[in-house]
Design a protein around this nucleic acid. Structure first.
Lengths: 234, 234
DNA sequence: ACCTGAACACCGTTCAAGT
DNA sequence: ACCTGAACACCGTTCAAGT
């Protein structure tokens, strides 16, 4: 079937041969499988079937590796965003894009920490930024308002994402405790606080218990978009 | 003046003696002086004048150290928040609290990554949460709306904070480049993009160049609060 | 041009032992 | 009850050398 790989000499496996593409694909695979702590140069080298030092031919350091891995997956998020239908209401289109970003981060919680962190090294991020911003060009806003509006929307996404990206406590990872049990346990602690000292916490503990992160995100996004709509006079 | 310290024997310095308080104070000092990477058990032990292992008497692991250090500084932020005058408009009071939080994070950029991350281990965080929430009790909202409103506001703070907490690139740290030069350099790269492909980016590049993070935060916060005001019918 | 092995300096964490 | 020294297993990064 496949031709004999050039990097196998007659003596057996000798020299590995990588490529930027394979380095990033395997880096993302590690991140997806076990989160940010799983991405080490040694683990990555092992997956690539080579030595640690060869990775440094492709990236200058770990920060750059993370930036490029992030931009790599943002490439596919960008495709999703570009596939969005787009309607006649720019604010609704902004919402649809933001929800797409949020969903992508839910699927890859490690993304939360690196998303939109460095638009220089991340060229797909810049395109995504442009895509969001393009919707604001359809609204009656000043340049400064547009700049701030897009920053605010990204802020809502990142703010929610950071919450999601939090490594769950050890009990949850070990599978001894599901997310619901974990929330329930925290909720129980809240219920035991003095209601006179914590009236708000008592009032919302039932909402907190078993809450959906997506709901929370949607509400935060809707508040920002409502404010934006008001500002644009739409 | 001060009595001879018990941990000095006649042979000279022998056994160090710590306390939770001194551990956290020195941990915060390290974080303040050089950011999150500076807080290592070895550096902390050196400042405390003892061995690394003794720190484990006070905290179970580094995560707990970070949680407690964060809660420690949130204690003083809480004092600032409680010292706020408080007016007749709950939304304005929410804004004042949020701005206080933002200012605290500007002063301690490392906080951004840990702020409000674990209200279990962080008892001062919970009090701060209650303080924000208490303002929403003065608004005509459902429990769910209150819960989401406070989450949204914290999201705006954290979203902006994450941006601030980013370690500046090496050139800025080295002092070869100021923040303005750094922004200007990025802005210049944006100006060189094809305007047909990046109309939005071109439209806001002058806003981006030399922008103030506080302005950006204030705008994001105001959008959220405007949305909240609308929701509460105030 | 691209890959390797071995080293370096540094982490968090543990543990048997001291006081 | 609290502290210590030394070890362990792991990091990112470098470099002289190979192909």
């Amino acid at each position: 079937m496949a031709a004999r790989q050039q990097n196998r000499s007659s003596q057996g496996r000798r020299r590995a041969s990588h490529s930027m593409e394979s380095v990033l694909t395997e880096a993302v695979a590690l991140l997806d499988e076990a989160g940010a702590p799983a991405l080490t140069f040694r683990a990555l080298a092992q997956r690539l079937g080579g030595g640690v030092a060869s990775i440094y031919w492709y990236v200058a350091n770990k920060d750059e590796l993370l930036d490029l891995a992030t931009d790599h997956v943002i490439g596919s998020i960008l495709s999703d965003v570009e596939a969005l239908p787009g309607g006649d209401d720019p604010v609704d289109d902004l919402r649809a894009i933001a929800v797409t970003l949020f969903d992508a981060i839910v699927a890859r919680p490690w993304l939360g920490a690196y998303f939109m962190r460095n638009t220089n090294a991340q060229s797909n991020s810049l395109r995504l930024y442009e895509h969001l911003g393009a919707q604001t060009l359809r609204l009656d806003l000043t340049a400064r308002q547009r700049f701030h509006a897009v920053s605010a929307i990204i802020g809502v996404v990142v703010g929610s994402a950071v919450d999601l990206g939090q490594e769950p406590p050890q009990e949850v990872l070990d599978g001894h405790l599901g997310r619901d049990e974990f929330l329930g346990r925290a909720a129980q602690a809240w219920r035991e606080l003095d209601p006179a000292d914590f009236p708000f916490v008592h009032g919302i503990v039932d909402e907190f218990d078993g809450h959906d992160d997506a709901d929370q995100f949607r509400s935060a996004l809707d508040l920002t978009l409502a404010g934006l709509r008001l500002q644009a006079g739409t």
